[in-house]
Design a protein around this nucleic acid. Sequence first.
DNA 1: CACGCATTGTTACAGTATAACATAACACAA
DNA 2: TTGTGTTATGTTATACTGTAACAATGCGTG
Lengths: 150, 150
Amino acid sequence: MDQRFQNLLATAQDKCDGNGLRLTQKRKQVLNILIEASSPLSAYEIKDLYAKQHNENIKPMTIYRALEFLVEANLVHKLNLNNKYIGCARAKCCEHHGYSQFLICVRCGNVEETNVDPVIYEHLVQQAQAYQCEIVMPHLEVACICVRCK
Amino acid sequence: MDQRFQNLLATAQDKCDGNGLRLTQKRKQVLNILIEASSPLSAYEIKDLYAKQHNENIKPMTIYRALEFLVEANLVHKLNLNNKYIGCARAKCCEHHGYSQFLICVRCGNVEETNVDPVIYEHLVQQAQAYQCEIVMPHLEVACICVRCK
DNA sequence: CACGCATTGTTACAGTATAACATAACACAA
DNA sequence: TTGTGTTATGTTATACTGTAACAATGCGTG
Ligand SMILES: [Zn+2]
Ligand SMILES: [Zn+2]
Ligand SMILES: [Zn+2]
Ligand SMILES: [Zn+2]
């Protein structure tokens, strides 16, 4: 396996250990698949890759459980725009995961994860206040066309 | 039927006529259900309501086709956050439908549709440029907790 | 009317996600 | 260590969401 993947996994392990979360084997295997893919995968694409890599069938329920944990731990994000899951691009650099913004290419599916611009965040909060809403915002998804697809 | 719904439907009809789009009976019936609901519905919730209102079973395919048309015509929006559809809150007031922003309550599902703040839009465009991405952005979805659910 | 095109009908199926209950692994205290 | 409660995993079944493919119908235009 690529050294970079090893580092990401090790960092993820540390993050979980430090927060009392259990990054079990199944969860780590699912995370590994997403990190290696480096582009979003559907739950059933993960299922198929798992079956190939481990030469062992795995049930959807198991995948969804692992994903639920990983999303909760901010190691993986669920993209609603295309209904896929992606390994966090910032697992290595950010101890405290803030609000993310995803530029999602509607043609090739490539994704760039960045921080939500503070100016944008402030404007969103203000607008929400006009409706007396409190922003929860796990993240922001922006549809775009990437440089390779133009 | 409520007078306001009548007006919304009439406006929708005018918009379609003016753009060479055919707002057929089935499409209008689906739009009507969404307008009356005033909160997001899943495709199969629409199916059930249709069956009740018209005392007639309707196939999913038919619903999805109507929704595809209505979304294309900007009379209905698809919310990716909760995988539901909502009648456009601005069908009456806006001839040219710009970028929308939705404040979606993660507790009760209530939705507020507004315009995307120009400042936010400009920042998004600039950030996208850093990745040489071109923003497509049909809309922005922001998870929040509404005033009634706090 | 005849033709082309858009819409709708119909069947079958693919893809996504969760409920419910059983079993196994683990943490921790007696 | 052994019991005990908790968390994780296994297993089966089922609900929910969405589309492919082809047939039939309607509609506007020459
Ligand atoms: Zn992240
Ligand atoms: Zn692309
Ligand atoms: Zn709208
Ligand atoms: Zn609410």
